[in-house]
Design a protein around this nucleic acid. Sequence first.
DNA 1: AAGTAAGAAATTT
DNA 2: AAATTTCTTACTT
Length: 96
Amino acid sequence: MTRRRWEQSTPFEERVYAVVRRIPRGQTRSYGWVARQLGNPRLARAVGQALHRNPDMRRTPCHRVVAADGSLGGYALAPGRKRALLRSEGVVVLKI
DNA sequence: AAGTAAGAAATTT
DNA sequence: AAATTTCTTACTT
């Protein structure tokens, strides 16, 4: 049962959360967009990892981060949950 | 300490 | 559309 402790945010996560938190409510951003803010558009995958390890999903609007092609991308919890959250903010998901 | 494996994408051809 | 590329973190040895 080697459970992962130290769920503290890593230096990289800290940077990702700073950008994600900056996203205005009601708008969606893509992983690449966040990655670009970090200085490297190819960090998209690392960004997704950081969000997955999100220590405060209630605080970090990880549901506001979607894929670049308009897809919802992924979500640790139920996928429909993400769609509902976005709809609650007035975001219309064109692609599924 | 070093190496290996996996991950919620993006990019390029 | 398919394959490749890229970065980070976690676990194992």
